[in-house]
Simulated assay, not measured.
Amino acid sequence: MTHPVTDRSRPDLDDTTVEGLGKLSEALETVEQARGQLYGFHQHSGKADLLLQDAVELFRKAGQDALADDLERDLVGRNVIADRWTFQIVEDYDATYWSTFRAFDERARQELAGGDRHVFEARMKQRERTAGHPDHQAGPALDD
Rank of each mutant, 00 (worst) to 15 (best):
S25T: 15
S25C: 03
E26G: 15
A27Y: 15
E29R: 10
E29A: 13
T30Y: 05
E32P: 02
Q33F: 12
A34G: 07
R35K: 14
G36M: 02
Y39V: 15
H42F: 13
G46Q: 12
G46V: 03
K47D: 09
D49N: 12
L51W: 03
L52F: 07
Q53F: 01
D54I: 15
A55I: 15
A55Q: 11
L58Q: 14
F59T: 02
R60I: 09
G63A: 03
D69N: 15
L75M: 04
L75W: 06
V76K: 00
V76C: 04
R78Y: 05
V80E: 04
A82E: 14
A82V: 14
R84S: 12
R84Y: 08
I89T: 09
E91T: 06
D92Q: 13
D92R: 09
D94Y: 10
T96V: 12
Y97F: 15
W98K: 10
S99I: 02
T100N: 09
A103P: 00
F104Q: 07
D105K: 06
A108P: 05
Q110D: 14
A113H: 06
H118Q: 06
V119N: 01
F120E: 06
Q126G: 13
E128P: 01
E128L: 12
E128F: 09
R129I: 01
R129S: 03
T130G: 03
A131K: 13
G132L: 06
G132F: 04
H133D: 15
Q137D: 07
A138S: 09
G139H: 08
G139F: 02
